[in-house]
Design a protein around this nucleic acid. Structure first.
Length: 548
RNA sequence: GGCCCUGUGGUCAAGCGGUUAAGACGGAGCCCUCUCAAGGCUCAAUCCCGGGUUCGAUUCCCGGCAGGGUCACCA
């Protein structure tokens, strides 16, 4: 059979560039030795969740800790998956979490010499190589219909054989020249398949950057490389793109591990040196009582927009993910509390071999800690940004008064101060925490544990002696005095020694006062709160807080 | 079902033939204290099971078991 003629018949495109030329068009990158070139290669569904960020972070760190390049390629070979605005959404989401691409789709970069970065726009490259493979006898046309393939698969399943297009099942592998041209003449749709040279009996060991040595068998499936619409499958596009975009480290989910033999064979057939692979374990989620991989379809609450909306501090999300990525990150951070996570020596080899359960509680802890380290100004900016986008009207109005919010953050939340409080775990909840500082959102949540007379005696008593100029000790001394007047123990120790002698202790008096002023049993330092609220507002609350 | 990966407290996990089996989150308790938060201290809690190899296995080997992944003209 004249294979050159066949390749021209199958790929008649007149505008193809010879395969050899591409080595010159996309030369090796002149990065330093050891530099990793990595990529994020999403399909343009526009929906990215925590799992994607996790893997993107691994890519980004691997590149940027080695002086390499992190680029964005869009795998849009499946038309059905396309969503408008998806690419911008990916970039925006990643930027929000501080991850930046050096190169790629929709990135304005001087490094953009390896494009186009959309696979659909690379059709010529793929077709040029498919043509070459056909001419070499390493690929062939397959005219089987979906129905025929289904029937074969069903038969294989029944016979408990491995499903797929291989060996004797690869019907079109042995088509005669005249059969092929007859089919072409009849415009019968076809795909191009790899003519696998592998043998399923042969095992070989492959080294994965994360999993270590993995023993697999050679591929013997004649996988589709060009679909009937002339667009490549993932496998073929991956081999060509990662080669010509000069990716050195392919980091991808472990769901790809099983098709690794295909990819290796494809590289061999194309004459490419395969990149290093790192198959990451996916982030898991508890579903009932079993673990399950995070899923786009099933877990919309894990979309990155969800975290933005809930107001998690973006850096905290990244740091949480870092702890999952490299478990020694946490220790490093403990030793370098001021350290930028970018200074941590990320190692792809240190990544865990088993899927980690996503731990929301831990994320919350990291988020709280990060926010507590902020200066009041930085915290204000963070909260303000959230309020502008997601806050209620009342929140927006409150945040117009920056000085007042800063006072609250500074003194009450202890943000940035020595006496750190970790009250704010995310913007949504932090903003709510401030409600009682404003008259329109102040409401009484807790109720008094004492009778009307006692409550009112405490409130009236304190109102009559309160002076906002008092410092903390004077303020507390006055409270003790009022407490004693209504039959409470002025010293907690006295109360503990003989509870039957008192109606309560000074802390009970404080509770009454606290409920009147903040509406809650629990709050930060009351004396400071009252100073921020101002005398007028305090007196009003003391008066209105009286038991009816 | 075939094939591949994984298996240390509730969770994330150090460990890499001999350890009192780190640390973090969470839990419990105590201290501090006007309550809460924070902080300090303390405690409970782990090597999937069975065989080997070895003077000695969490660690190495084999077999189970369990969990995950994958078997498309989807990525």
């Amino acid at each position: 059979m004249d294979l050159n003629k066949l390749s021209r018949a199958l790929i008649p495109d007149g505008d193809l560039i010879a395969p050899e030329e591409y080595e010159k068009i996309y030369p090796e990158r002149n990065t330093e030795k050891g530099a990793c070139v990595t990529r994020l290669a999403p399909s343009p569904t526009g929906f990215i969740h925590l799992g994607n960020l996790y893997s993107a972070l691994a890519d980004e760190r691997a590149a940027h800790t080695t002086g390499g390049i992190f680029y964005l390629r869009i795998e849009d070979t499946d038309e059905k998956r396309k969503v408008d605005g998806a690419v911008e959404s990916v970039i925006r989401s990643l930027n929000y979490f501080g991850l930046k691409f050096d190169e790629g789709a929709e990135i304005n970069s001087p490094l953009n010499n390896y494009g186009p970065y959309y696979q659909r726009r690379r059709a010529k490259i793929y077709r040029s190589f498919a043509k070459k493979l056909i001419a070499q006898g390493l690929a062939y046309p397959c005219f089987c219909s979906a129905e025929e393939l289904d029937a074969v698969r069903e038969k294989q399943t029944q016979n408990k054989e491995t499903t797929g297009y291989y060996g004797a099942y690869a019907k079109c592998r042995t088509l005669t020249e005249s059969e092929i041209y007859e089919n072409l003449k009849n415009n019968k749709p076809f795909v191009i398949r790899l003519k696998s040279q592998g043998n399923i009996e042969n095992k070989f060991t492959f080294n994965d950057a994360i999993k270590g040595d993995i023993t697999v068998t050679e591929n013997d499936k004649d996988v589709v490389i060009l679909k009937s619409d002339g667009i490549p499958t993932y496998h073929f596009a991956h081999a060509i793109d990662d080669h010509f975009m000069r990716t050195t480290l392919v980091i991808r989910g472990e769901e790809w591990l099983s098709s690794l033999p295909v990819h290796l064979e494809l590289h061999k057939a194309l004459g490419f040196k395969p990149p290093r692979y790192a198959h990451t374990c996916s982030l898991m989620k508890m579903d009932g009582d079993t673990k399950r991989k995070l899923s786009k379809r099933k877990d919309p609450e894990l979309s990155l927009d969800y975290y933005r909306k809930a107001g998690y501090y973006p850096l905290a999300v990244v740091k949480y993910l870092m702890t999952v990525l490299n478990s020694n990150f946490e220790e490093w951070q403990l030793k370098n509390p001021e350290g930028d996570y970018r200074d941590f020596k990320f190692k792809i080899e240190k990544m865990g071999k088993s899927g980690a359960l996503f731990d929301l509680e831990k994320l919350c802890d990291v988020s709280k800690t990060e926010i507590s380290r902020l200066t009041p100004e930085a915290c204000y900016d963070f909260l303000k940004e959230w309020v502008d986008e997601f806050g209620a009207e009342s929140d927006k109005a409150h945040f117009e008064n920056k000085e007042y919010i800063l006072k609250i953050l500074n003194l009450i939340m202890g943000v940035g101060g020595k006496k750190r409080r970790k009250d704010i775990e995310r913007a949504e909840q932090g903003v709510k925490l401030m409600d009682y500082f404003f008259d329109d959102t102040f409401n009484v949540k807790d109720s008094y544990a004492y009778d009307k007379n006692t409550v009112n005696a405490v409130l009236e008593g304190f109102a009559s002696v309160y002076n906002p100029a008092d410092d903390n000790s004077v303020w507390f001394a006055k409270l003790k005095q009022v407490a004693a007047q209504v039959g409470f123990a002025a010293e907690t120790s006295d109360y503990k020694a003989a509870p039957e002698k008192y109606a309560g202790s000074v802390s009970d008096a404080a509770e009454i006062l606290r409920i009147a002023v903040t509406g809650m049993k629990n709050s930060p330092d009351l004396c400071t709160i009252m100073k921020i609220l101002g005398k007028e507002r305090c007196m009003k609350r003391l008066a209105e807080g009286k038991a009816k």
